Computed example of a mutant assay.
Amino acid sequence: MTASDPKADLRLYLQDARDVLLWKLDGLPEYDIRRPLTPTGTNLLGLVKHLAGAEALYFGATFGRPFPGTPLWITGDAEPDADLWARADETREDIVGLYRRACAHADETIAALPLDAVGRVPGAPGDMTLHRILTHMIAETQRHAGHADIVRELIDGAVGQRPGGLNVAPHDPEHIARVERAAKEAAARGDRRT
């Protein structure tokens, strides 16, 4: 039987999600990492910027370890949704660097505190444990890595958790046709929502 280290396990899953998010930027020009590709404006660099703020907030101020130089868009002194897109004067290197620094700061907090350490998210009611914050950040980062996966697929077809897209269905026209046929057949049977 292998011994388990819950904190190390959680940290591993968080780092994996972080890595997935960042590789979605690889090889793309500035326009493609910034342009809105959904009706809500979802874009790759904005997702990284958003998660930089989340890491800084949840693992910084929450546990009395403020992240140095926290951007105004985290504290609410910026225009609405400023954390979800990059201004023209914000470089890829600046935002990715900020994300890496926020993650390193978060890792220091994770290493320094036990999972049952209690903190308070600024502006939120109630206390939260490091365990709960870690779980939340894994879910948050994986959620946005999924958004990034879809956005990247819209840009150039690159998909998956790693370069090469080995963990997703292949680009197969027959598969797409099968899915489309099933959708049409279900629709022809009528809307059965209850």
Rank of each mutant, 00 (worst) to 15 (best):
G46D: 04
E93Y: 03
K24T: 14
A106K: 10
R162I: 08
G64F: 13
P6G: 10
L134V: 00
P6N: 10
M128N: 05
A183H: 14
L57R: 14
A169W: 07
Q161Y: 13
P122T: 11
I110L: 12
V168H: 14
A124E: 02
A186M: 14
E79D: 06
D16S: 10
P173C: 01
R34F: 07
T62N: 04
E79Q: 08
V20P: 00
G190K: 02
A54Y: 02
E55N: 11
L57W: 03
I138L: 13
V168W: 15
D19R: 10
A183Q: 14
L84P: 06
R178Y: 02
I176M: 02
P114W: 00
V20I: 15
Q142I: 11
L45D: 01
E174I: 02
L14W: 14
R92F: 03
V20A: 03
G164W: 00
E140W: 04
G123L: 01
H136G: 01
G164I: 06
R143E: 02
P29A: 14
A88T: 06
P125Q: 08
R189G: 15
G123R: 00
G146D: 08
T129A: 09
A52E: 05
D9N: 11
H136Q: 12
G146V: 08
E30D: 15
L45K: 01
A104L: 04
R11V: 08
E79Y: 02
E180H: 10
E140I: 04
L84A: 12
D16Y: 13
Y31G: 15
I176L: 07
I150L: 15
H175F: 10
K7R: 15
R101P: 08
D5H: 13
A8G: 11
